[in-house]
């Protein structure tokens, strides 16, 4: 299978990418690692007229110490994040989860920016970024703006990014002493999560869910129950509240709700909540 024809342009800088987006409008799509976009294009589920390749913006492929935060360039590959000594020290839930994405080949090509901008609620990193209160940095014609993770994911494959904006950086807070766990459930090793659950305990506990609705979710009922002093298993019992689980070949909504309760309990236990 070969994608439908398109025009290919390579961005030389972030500003160049933005001006190309302005020039080509709705017809254009950014290409990072291509590991979400190219499979869709091969299946003709996406048919952009112009691909703007941002894959060579090396300035966006690094991980930097940024005071209270760690700044991860949008073009950083999952494998770089998985093995980053800085992230392993300062925000291990992010480096660990990057290591759970797909398989080795996918982690060599796929980028965190693509993962986040694609806005797929079955992706692993968005849920974790939501739970740690990451900040997304976007660059557009009017300059740079910061978007909190809690405002970023707006719908099924939709985000707060406009058509002329590029995601440049994902900032994650340093949480070197937090308890954490990411529980991913799938049937075959390389697959996407049927359901995933993250818990991060840093004083209070944050809980997030992968693939339990059209966007990555915070399990607010669980968080509130823990705040009110509920036991871990009582808190985990309300994990499916407020979710809208999809039903597909991998499982019914009811099965996913069951998984959410089980995985949240395991995540809370492992995070030491």
């Amino acid at each position: 299978m070969i994608p439908a024809s398109f025009e290919y342009v390579r961005a030389e800088s972030v500003d160049h990418a933005v001006s190309l987006l302005q020039e080509h409008g709705e017809e254009a799509k950014l290409l990072a690692g291509g590991h979400s976009l190219l499979p869709l294009m091969k299946l003709r589920l996406a048919q952009p007229g112009v691909l703007i390749d941002i894959g060579r913006l090396g300035d966006l492929a690094n991980i930097r110490d940024d005071g209270d935060m760690v700044s991860i360039g949008a073009l950083t590959h999952h494998a770089q994040i998985e093995h980053s000594p800085l992230l392993r020290q300062e925000c291990p839930v992010v480096s660990h989860t990057a290591g759970q994405v797909g398989d080795l080949q996918v982690r060599h090509r796929g980028t965190i920016g693509g993962s986040v901008a694609h806005g797929d609620s079955a992706s692993d990193l968005p849920t974790v970024l939501l739970a740690v209160d990451a900040v997304m940095v976007a660059h557009g014609p009017e300059g740079t703006r910061e978007i909190p993770a809690s405002d970023f994911f707006t719908g099924f494959w939709e985000t707060a990014l406009t058509d002329v904006e590029l995601l440049t950086t994902i900032k994650v807070p340093k949480l070197p002493n937090a308890g954490w766990s990411y529980q991913k459930f799938n049937r075959r090793a390389q697959d996407w999560a049927i359901v995933g659950a993250v818990a991060v305990k840093n004083g209070t506990t944050r809980v997030g869910l992968t693939n339990m609705g059209s966007i990555p979710l915070r399990a607010t009922a669980v968080e509130a129950a823990l705040q009110a002093g509920a036991s871990l298993s009582d808190a985990a019992a309300v994990a499916a509240e407020g979710t809208n689980a999809p039903a597909d070949v991998n499982g019914s909504a009811a099965y996913r709700e069951h998984l959410a309760r089980v995985l949240v309990r395991r995540a809370l236990e492992e995070a030491g909540s």
């Binding site: 291509g34 190219l38 080949q105 060599h108």
Partner: peptide, 21 residues
């Protein structure tokens, strides 16, 4: 993974990479 090759030394699935990349 049948299409796996090394691109600048690391394994990739070459059915999901464009030649221009």
């Amino acid at each position: 993974g049948a299409c796996t090759v090394l691109l600048d030394g690391v394994s990739v699935k070459s059915c999901t990479v464009l030649a221009v990349q």
